[in-house]
Design a protein around this nucleic acid. Structure first.
Lengths: 196, 196
DNA sequence: GTCTATAATTTGATAGAC
DNA sequence: GTCTATCAAATTATAGAC
């Protein structure tokens, strides 16, 4: 399973069904049978498209949804009149999405990544690649806004850490207060970084 | 299961065994049989001490380890010459612990909290209570250092979000860079908050 | 309180017909 | 490629002897 450019074949339906269940229930708690049912296919189809079983499916879900989340955030940030307001918009959008989904849909891969970090090396590497993509993309934008590369990278990691931590606290408390507080702090950090 | 003041009875052994396995493998991936084996007891003992089954055990683990983590962080912060250097020490200590455990031991409840946030209300409330304790404790210290209550709370939430997000990125990348970057940003946020 | 045995269900995975 | 049937193992949970 390498490409996802084809339009709505079975493999894609499986990936999207798995992504939704993994995000809401976690990786270990989601059975392949539940994924097959949600995708409207028998379980044999999963093994046809993902011979590596649950781990290969997990890797694919992390890669696809990680790239999708990055693209979404990049689009919001780049639509802002400048980097600072773009980041402000990203946190506000995250808060709106989390609230609209009744605190179910936050980061598409954080739960998976924590579950398997110490027990499944292929999936851990997939999550690392996804996060690295996010960090590099944000680092480039902060650097371009006027900041040395080292500070830009540390700031990018901090902004994304604020987002991930706030996702956790928002889901646990069923409140968007953490995302608003973290957004304010992220804006302050970026403003300070590019005004040096 | 309410108290844990008694010295090393079976219930306590069960809680500690479960805490270690939950932290490293997650909640759903850890079976009660594995917990019983790790605790050196038969599975029947778990149901004797925790009639509510896995959920009641999960709630207890969250409560106990959440309180323990709070106490640990408070001790480190309060040992610093001032709040800012105390927070710096806390992030440095977290990085050292994560690295020493080969990137297995980070936040004791984050993985659990994300796994069950949308599917197990008693456990979700337990995680919310634990996080609220951390936020309140840090808010009080920032306020005492010279800051209005509203800013202190937003800063506390941001500092803890930085820590949680950095835990995630550190485990996924098997690197302490995120914890160092987040620590630097946390120090900057607190410094700015108390110098208003 | 401890421990054994077991029920009922679900898990990931495989084989093979179509 | 699709789908059915099935396996061996693991899951939570319970009943009851000691």
């Amino acid at each position: 399973m390498t490409d996802t450019t084809t339009i709505n074949p079975s493999a894609e339906r499986i990936v999207f069904a798995a992504a939704e269940l993994f995000r809401r229930q976690g990786f270990a708690a989601t059975g392949l049978k539940a994924i097959a049912t949600e995708a409207g296919l028998p379980i044999g189809s999963i093994y046809h498209h993902f011979p590596g079983g649950k781990t290969e499916l997990g890797e694919t879900v992390i890669r696809i949804t990680g790239a999708g989340f990055q693209e979404l955030v990049e689009t919001i940030i780049d639509a802002g009149t400048n980097l600072v307001s773009g980041i402000d918009d990203a946190f506000a959008g995250a808060a709106a999405t989390v609230e609209a989904s009744d605190y179910a849909d936050a980061c598409p891969i954080a739960t998976l990544a924590l579950e398997i970090a110490s027990t499944n090396e292929p999936m851990r590497q997939a999550s690392d690649r996804a996060f690295t993509g996010w960090i590099d993309a944000l680092t480039g934008r902060i650097e371009a806004a006027g900041c040395d590369r080292k500070t830009a990278r540390a700031t990018a990691i901090s902004v994304l850490s604020l987002l991930e931590g706030a996702f956790l606290f928002s889901r646990a408390s069923r409140s968007v207060e953490p995302l608003h507080a973290a957004g304010t702090s992220a804006v302050a950090l970026v403003r300070a970084a590019i005004s040096d």
